[in-house]
Simulated assay, not measured.
Amino acid sequence: MSELLKIRRQTQVERRAESEQRLLTAAAELIATEGFAAASLERVGATAGYSRGLASQKFGSKDGLVTAVIAAVIARSAELLVARDSDSASPLDSIIAYADVILLQIERDPFIRAYWVMMASAIANRLPNQTQFLAEHEKVKARLSGLITQGQDRGEIDSSVDPDAAALSIGSTLLGIGIECLLDPALDIPRVRAAALATISRTLAASTKV
């Protein structure tokens, strides 16, 4: 393959990646600020600065757009966790890091706010794609439950804690804060974030009493 052809192909890949990111960003901002119904594929394309049909070509349908935004939220969370080197932390620290990343995203990132709006819309309207959100939440619950079990094995997390129930409780706390933020944009998220992290830590930490 000639160098010129390689450059052209790389440029095409870069252009596709850029257009997809711009479309996803436009979708997230529309959904977060105006609601799920406002983010038609045509409007997403126009808001991103492309032809109105490009979003349809990229995502195929509104359900396809939902799937893409969910994937983007998960990828962004994973990148933030990697940046914090959470995999090398203790189980309890990894749980706190995960909760902190989600809460920071709620505070700063329109993508996760769009996620909550889409989920609320799916539940309120009994849409079939609510199963996508349930599936992702089950993955998070399994991950947190596994970390809790690991922490119990190490003596770091209270052995009386029910891993599955505690994992669900942590996820529900983060979910509730996200929904509350949508209801009250003036919510003092840093204050709530600090309280939530302290509560999770106190709930899970093994007793130091002798």
Rank of each mutant, 00 (worst) to 15 (best):
R191C: 05
R193G: 02
L187K: 07
P190W: 03
A186G: 08
A186W: 06
L182H: 10
L187R: 11
D184S: 10
R191M: 11
V192P: 02
R202M: 13
C181Q: 15
A195M: 11
A198P: 01
R202T: 14
I200W: 00
D184E: 14
V192L: 09
S201L: 10
R193Q: 13
I200M: 01
V192S: 03
L183W: 07
S201V: 02
R191H: 13
R202A: 14
C181E: 13
P190A: 02
I200F: 01
L183Y: 11
A194E: 10
L183T: 12
D184M: 07
P190T: 08
L183F: 13
A195S: 13
P185V: 08
A196I: 07
I177N: 02
E180S: 12
L175N: 12
R191I: 10
V192G: 02
I179V: 15
I177G: 02
A186M: 11
L183M: 12
C181F: 15
L197W: 03
I189N: 05
G176H: 09
P185N: 06
R193T: 07
G176W: 08
P185W: 06
L197P: 01
L182C: 12
L175Y: 15
R202S: 13
A194D: 05
P190Y: 04
L183S: 14
T203H: 09
D188Q: 10
A194Q: 13
L204S: 05
D188A: 14
L183N: 08
L187D: 06
L175V: 07
P190C: 03
R202C: 05
L175D: 06
A196W: 02
S201C: 10
A198V: 06
R202N: 11
A195V: 10
A195P: 00
A198N: 08
L175W: 15
L182A: 11
I177D: 02
R191Y: 09
E180F: 07
I177P: 00
I177C: 05
L204Y: 06
L182I: 14
I200A: 01
V192D: 01
T203F: 09
L204D: 05
T203N: 10
T203P: 00
D188W: 02
S201I: 01
L204G: 05
T199M: 12
L175M: 12
A198S: 15
A205P: 00
A196V: 13
P185L: 11
D188L: 03
S201K: 15
A196K: 02
A198G: 05
D188T: 07
D184G: 00
R202P: 00
P190M: 02
L197M: 03
A205E: 11
E180T: 08
A186T: 15
L187A: 11
S201Y: 10
A198T: 13
A195G: 01
A205C: 07
A196G: 04
R193S: 10
L183C: 08
I179E: 03
D184Q: 12
A196M: 07
L187F: 06
R193W: 09
I179A: 12
G178Y: 04
L204V: 08
A205Y: 00
G178A: 06
T199I: 04
P185Q: 09
I200V: 12
L187H: 03
L182D: 09
L183R: 14
A194W: 00
L197Q: 01
G176L: 07
G176F: 08
A205V: 12
L187G: 04
D188C: 03
L183E: 12
I177K: 04
R202F: 10
